[in-house]
Amino acid sequence: MGVRFRDRLTPEGQRFFRELAELKELEVRVGFQRGKSQEEDGTDMCDVAAFNELGTDHIPARPFIRQSVDDNESKINSFLKEEVKDFAQGKSAEQILKEIGIFQKDLMQDKITSGSFAPNAESTIKKKGSSKPLVDTGRMRQSVNYVIQKKGSGDD
């Protein structure tokens, strides 16, 4: 009769699998959350961002959201590789998602400030005193944020 062995997870292993299960259930969303910020005229900042990102009949597309990802692909990949290492070494799922949210928020805010976009129309320059698009009061840049939520919740 042979000796039977049963493998058991260490407390660290148990914690890792709990965090992994939590990570599978959560997502981080970076951008503009409807109802959290408005222009002085009451226009939701989520709409203002969409108008600028995609363009309208009167506003040229200024795709700061897409460019914040496309222009930083290698930087994002390097950052995420480090986050995977940190997770394997014990960082919590919530902390990983917070760091991803902050990282992408910073990239998006930087693109709003320093991106190269179609200049403002002469009428807009006269109104706000600047030819720099996407930056007027700073409200849109300040409104970029992130939320961590259960996957699929809040889908509209």
Rank of each mutant, 00 (worst) to 15 (best):
Q109R: 12
T137W: 03
K75Y: 05
F32V: 01
Q33L: 15
D136M: 00
P11I: 03
M1V: 09
M140R: 12
E19M: 03
Q33T: 14
K81V: 15
G35A: 06
Q95E: 15
Q89M: 05
V69N: 15
M140Q: 07
G42A: 09
D86A: 14
L54K: 14
T137Q: 04
E12C: 03
G35C: 05
E53V: 02
G152V: 03
F79T: 00
A88R: 05
L20E: 14
G35E: 11
F32L: 13
P11A: 14
K111G: 09
R4I: 10
D155F: 13
G101S: 03
R8P: 13
K132H: 13
V48N: 10
V69L: 09
D155W: 07
F64N: 06
Q14E: 06
Q38T: 15
S116P: 01
D155Y: 11
P133Y: 09
F16L: 14
M140K: 05
G42T: 02
K126Y: 07
E27D: 09
E22G: 07
E40D: 07
P119H: 06
E25K: 06
Q109Y: 08
S131G: 10
D57V: 09
H58E: 07
E122I: 10
K111R: 12
K105Q: 11
L107R: 08
K151Q: 04
E83C: 01
G138F: 05
L97T: 08
L54P: 03
I65L: 11
E94Q: 06
R34I: 10
G152P: 04
F103S: 01
I125Q: 14
F32P: 11
A121G: 05
A88F: 05
K105E: 13
R139F: 12
K85A: 12
N72C: 04
S78E: 06
K128N: 13
V144K: 02
F117V: 02
D156L: 10
K85E: 15
D110H: 09
